[in-house]
């Protein structure tokens, strides 16, 4: 019970800190949020218009009062109103969440599959496979999303005409964004998985399984892979965070609605409520993800459950 309470307390702390840091960071950046309301920066807005907007959004209050105000609203579940889009942040962020979660989850799944496939193949195929697998992983991990995405568009949309570059066409439109996000992540996960797979293959329980006469495939898939997956599972929380960063680029390039694109636009226009709103939602998702990966780790490795 105490553990559950501590966990909830920790989550609340994280949300508070995230909101606080974001609020002050965005307000530190040069640029006037009131202008976001008046059609963007550089507007030649009249003094009356600026004053009206500052009053309407409480921007004429001292910064700390604005912060407290925002905090109180956040505590009651009100994410406030967007400066630039003049709509409520809550519904906006929720409407964008789906698109990002969809590509991020698919990409995480695909990255897992790719990494696992590469890891199992390259630990079995001798030296050439080892070097090839290792090399592929390093190359994949060193691919910047923005470049990889553009290259995929050129090859698969312009030259081959296989996959559409934008999302209007349902499932086919998902292929390129998901692949863009998945491949670099797969390179990263693959490196870690392969190392732990090797360790697991040399461990006593695999030896005993072999001694019991279990088939090689059985040994690999049932025992080794389960252990190899452990560090990758615990990395999935982190991976999810990195996918959100990737989504900023991928959603912009593939013109998909989503949190990443919303975040980038909001930062550029100093739309403080939207930046805070997106960051809060990402934090909530991250907290839930770590909860899930913890549970998954415990399932995959019962020792963890005993230890804690």
């Amino acid at each position: 019970m105490l553990r559950v309470l501590a966990r909830i307390g920790g989550a609340v702390f994280v949300l508070w800190a995230v909101a606080t840091v974001t609020f002050f960071a965005v307000r530190l950046i040069p640029g006037d949020p009131a202008e976001a309301v008046l059609g963007g920066p550089g507007s030649m807005a009249s003094a009356e218009a600026l004053a009206a907007v500052r009053r309407e959004y409480g921007l004429d209050q001292p910064l700390f009062v604005q912060y407290l105000d925002q905090l109180v609203r956040l505590a009651t579940g009100d994410l406030g109103r967007s400066y630039a889009l003049s709509i409520d942040v809550g519904p906006l962020v929720l409407s964008q969440l789906g698109g990002t979660l969809l590509i991020a989850t698919l990409a995480l799944g695909l990255a897992w599959l790719l990494a696992l496939a590469l890891a199992t193949w390259s630990t079995r195929g001798g030296r050439v496979a080892w070097y090839l697998g290792s090399g592929l992983e390093i190359v994949a991990a060193a691919l910047p999303h923005f470049w990889f995405a553009t290259a995929l568009i050129v090859v698969f949309s312009i030259w081959l005409g296989v996959f559409p570059p934008i999302s209007t066409s349902g499932v086919a439109g998902l292929v390129l964004p998901v692949v863009t996000l998945a491949v670099p992540l797969a390179g990263f996960l693959g490196q870690i998985m392969r190392e732990s797979l090797l360790l697991a293959l040399e461990s006593p329980f695999v030896l005993s399984a072999r001694a019991r006469g279990e088939s090689e495939a059985g040994v690999r898939w049932i025992h080794a892979v389960r252990h190899a997956a452990l560090p990758a599972i615990s990395l999935s929380g982190w991976a999810f965070g990195s996918l959100i960063s990737g989504a900023v680029v991928v959603e912009t390039i593939f013109a998909r609605p989503g949190l990443g694109r919303t975040l980038l636009n909001a930062v550029t226009s100093r739309d403080v409520p939207v930046v805070v709103g997106v960051v809060m939602i990402v934090a909530v998702v991250y907290i839930l993800m770590t909860l899930l990966t913890d549970l998954a780790s415990r399932l995959a490795d019962p020792r963890l459950a005993v230890r804690s």
């Binding site: 553009t150 312009i158 570059p165 390039i253």
Partner: peptide, 12 residues
């Protein structure tokens, strides 16, 4: 927003 995507969408 991305010019390469825009052009690819036109081409396709």
């Amino acid at each position: 927003p991305e010019s390469a995507t825009r052009y690819a969408a036109l081409q396709s």
